[in-house]
Design a protein around this nucleic acid. Structure first.
Length: 420
RNA sequence: GGAGAGGUGACCGAGAGGCCGAAGGUAACGGUUUGCUAAACCGUCGCACCUUAAAAAGGGUGCCGAGGGUUCGAAUCCCUCCCUCUCCGCCA
């Protein structure tokens, strides 16, 4: 959620953001402003009524303790309680309306984000390496995997349905090696602390990072227990500090966690139906940062570089794309996607998405820090990125390291992890 | 899953319808004292919202696990839910 003061004082900024994101029609900003005014007036009214209640009740108490007659004051209070209750009911309604609208406001975009309608307007900011050339037509990972009997899509479907899969032998080992390699890289060389936490979280956590209430259809929820399967370890890591005030000298905090990620992929029927690109369950190494506001844009660059390092060590060609205004997710102020080259699919595939949320998530999740003793708490800035999606990385390794006979060469960086 | 106990500020802990935003203690911070350390003494020591001002400061409201109810008045009484602990059961 953005700072509500912006709703009060700078509607133009919100309108510009909506315009940039091609969301002009989505929210009536003027209506929102009006609702906010109403809200504030009601709060003032209720506070006044409560002030009276507190004051007169106290007087009654004093009179009674002296055994004097308080009936006049009690009579005066008649109706005050009901008036408060009525106003509170009204406020609840308005608050709900306000929250719904305010929560659906997207984050303010960073000025460096280019205008654009959709992914076609994203800007390639750099590329690393080159597309490998093959003396034979490279095959997609799902063909390679099925031929080698290390990917089993049919049994995945038998066990759980479409978009599920089974790794066997080398595929399972390779992915495990990839995850360990990534975690070691981030903890040993990039200063992240490794975390392992719940893959299943309560609603407050899903709300804290913005999955709920808006995008409820995207996630698996266990109704009976009121818990949800995380779509990314971002949820676990970011909510670690929900409702907390962090001592300023603890910042910046860099965390990494490996987890399974669960996504319903509700809106993507018919898209990427083959292979490991779009599945309901996959593993990912996530990077999350909590930083002081002044540093967050620099931290985004570093975070992206940390994720890129994985591909560099694996010697996989990729490009970094700055998402345009229309393609940047609502909570993010600025996002870089890292897209790895997949020779078998003959296209670039997103393998990491690195975002700076500024204080948008922190406000929702009430994550604050105290710069120095005695100072008022302020919202931190949160960032996250994949470092990287393991399943897609496995697919990229398979496609880029394939040999003519359909076997797969092991990348140098992974050899220590596959020693027998 | 069953039985019991309990959730109060950074922490410990009192409070059992009115003068309680909450005693007392610990920790922290500032000061006095001191050759230094320690001790002692004095002071400060929550968060959010509304508001006047818009730097500092002031006024009001809310918050004693969460939500509702009773009452002129609730940390205190009632209801619902959540969580923690102990014992039993089950279990990697």
């Amino acid at each position: 959620m953005i700072d509500p003061k912006i709703i009060r004082d700078d509607i133009a900024l919100i309108q510009k953001t909506l315009q940039m994101r091609n969301m002009e029609g989505a929210i009536d900003v003027n209506e929102l402003k009006e609702i906010n005014e109403k809200r504030r007036a009601l709060i003032a009214k209720i506070d006044q009524l409560r002030e009276k209640r507190n004051r007169v009740s106290k007087e009654i108490g004093i009179l009674k303790s002296k055994n004097e007659d308080a009936s006049r004051l009690v009579a005066e209070m008649e109706g005050v309680g009901d008036a408060i209750k009525a106003a509170e009911t009204e406020l609840n309604t308005i608050n709900e309306l306000f929250d719904n609208m305010a929560l659906s406001l997207p984050n303010i975009l960073d000025p460096s984000v280019p205008y654009g309608r959709d992914e076609r307007d994203n800007v390639v900011v750099r590329t690393w390496g080159e597309k490998p050339s093959f003396p034979f037509p490279p095959r997609p990972h799902y063909e390679l995997g099925v031929n080698l009997d290390i990917l089993d899509f049919e049994r995945g479907v038998k066990l759980a349905g479409t978009r599920f899969y089974v790794y066997k032998g080398l595929a399972a080992q390779l992915e495990r090696a990839l995850i360990n390699f990534m975690l070691d890289l981030h903890t040993r060389e990039h200063g992240y602390t490794e975390i392992f936490g719940p893959f299943i979280v309560n609603d407050e956590s899903m709300i804290g990072t913005g999955q709920y209430p808006k995008f409820k259809d995207e996630y698996y929820r266990i109704e009976r227990d009121g818990l949800s399967l995380i779509p990314t370890a971002e949820v676990t890591l970011t909510n670690l500090y929900r409702d907390e005030i962090i001592e300023g000298d603890k910042l910046p905090i860099y965390l990494t966690m490996q987890s399974a990620c669960f996504r319903r992929e509700a809106g993507s029927a018919g898209k990427d139906t083959r292979g490991l690109i779009r599945v309901h369950q996959f593993q990912k190494v996530e990077l999350v940062k909590f930083v002081e506001p002044e540093t967050s844009m620099d931290e985004l660059e570093k975070l992206t570089a940390d994720a890129e390092k994985v591909l560099q060590r694996l010697n996989l060609h990729y490009r970094v794309v700055l998402l345009c205004s229309g393609d940047t997710s609502a909570a993010s102020a600025k996002t870089y996607d890292i897209e790895v080259w997949m020779p078998g699919l003959d296209r670039y595939v997103e393998i990491s998405s690195c975002s700076n949320f500024l204080d948008y998530q922190a406000r929702r999740a009430r994550i604050r820090y105290r710069k120095a003793k005695g100072e008022k708490p302020a919202l931190v800035h949160t960032l996250n990125g994949s470092g990287l999606a393991a399943g897609r990385t496995l697919a990229a390794v398979m496609e880029n390291y394939q040999r003519e006979d359909g076997t797969i060469e092991i990348p140098e960086a992974l050899k220590p992890y596959l020693a027998r």
